[in-house]
Computed example of a mutant assay.
Amino acid sequence: MPRPPSFSTHIDSLSARVFSGLAAKAAAKRAAGEPVHMLSVGDTYEEPPEAARVDALHSSDLDGIHKYAPPPGLPKLLAAISDRTEALGRRVPEERLQVMSGATAGLSVISETLFDVGDEVLLPSPFWPLIRGIIAKRGAVPVQVPLFHALDSLDVEATLEAAITDRTVALYVNTPHNPTGAIASPAALDAFVRVATRHDLWLICDEAYQDLAFVDAPAPLWTRDDVQERYVACHTLSKSYGLAGARIGYAHGCAAVGEALRAVQAFSTYSAPTPMQVSAERALRTGDEFLARRRELFAVAGRETAEVLGIPAPAGGTFLFFDASPYLREGESDSLGFLGRCLDAGVLMTPGSSCGADFAKWVRICFTSESLDEHRDALERLGGVLKTIC
């Protein structure tokens, strides 16, 4: 029962400085006119499809664009999303869809909808840094399970089973994966479903990178017949269509889930921004060629990044994750010293500890935040640091 100046204990593990003090040093270098390649945050460098850009929105042509949208979402956007889910493998009716203010807010609404205080959520690590805090601020317990760094070599089912307790209520799955760039195989997806079914768990499907697979990928987990009563999926247009600043996403599940999400969303942000919902509908309707070209460019950037690091190319997504142990100096117990040296060379990356407690010596690198020419300069700088150490 906090009183001023105390706060809720649910936020004890949260910090506004998710990516460490390195960001402040990077900002100072940039303010001084020094070049810094910002490969720490998963933004994308291209402008959205032309029809979806802000300068294509005209209030004279769009009645009500400055008014509240219906809490579930604009009807035209819901129709476009429903069509999109069919293209992804299984049509979700419009009445089961909920437009969200981006995937971060969407996953927060999902957490508020599904979890009680003290509930445990299996969180395969390494993971997207914000998901741990999203779960924790609800009062639930994110249980970190080291898995995705070695997904093809570990026994997925046994690894998850070892973390199950009588408080476990959900399993979070993100594929294509942030930060490893891995895509879960059909065998891994089967294991996720068996564990969820055996223990009657919710499956939280984070589909942020659904459109950015560089190899043939299995059908999304949420499209399977055997998960229809236990899945909740969250999607975003940030990565696929370059609309990160628009803060538009959507979520869905079975009919009961859709109704519950709608209720919680109404008391969270009420509705997503109306102008950005118009942009999102246009992106979904006109963005296929844009998306195909984007995949090709990102795949090239991912392969070239992997070559410099000496690791396998990503199967999808916008990140790679690598063990920096060979590049640490004597006495260094984590990757921060190495990251400082990389920043001195003009490259900012994310410490692996942001992605899980077991990955202090690892590093996350984004390969989509800059144009390919700019990214190649970053790789040359990074390669120079690696060669100096080796």
Rank of each mutant, 00 (worst) to 15 (best):
D43F: 15
Y68S: 14
C254H: 10
C390L: 10
H37V: 03
L39C: 12
F7K: 13
P70A: 12
R138E: 08
L57F: 02
C205H: 05
R96W: 09
A324F: 01
R90W: 07
R303N: 13
V215W: 06
R90Y: 05
A292F: 02
F321K: 01
E330I: 11
Q210D: 01
A217Q: 07
S15W: 02
V193Q: 00
V193L: 07
E370G: 05
D152L: 13
A251K: 02
A345N: 02
R295N: 02
L189Q: 14
L339R: 14
A306V: 12
S59F: 09
H149F: 00
G133Y: 01
D152E: 14
S333A: 14
V117S: 13
L147Y: 05
K137I: 13
E289A: 12
D190S: 08
Y231S: 08
S238L: 02
P48K: 00
A301I: 08
V195A: 09
Y270G: 06
R90F: 08
S13E: 15
M100I: 02
V156C: 03
L261H: 00
T85K: 12
R17K: 09
L122T: 06
L372T: 12
F290K: 09
C366A: 10
A56I: 01
W128A: 15
T44N: 11
T85D: 05
L130Q: 05
T168E: 07
V264S: 09
V173H: 05
R90H: 11
C342R: 03
A299F: 04
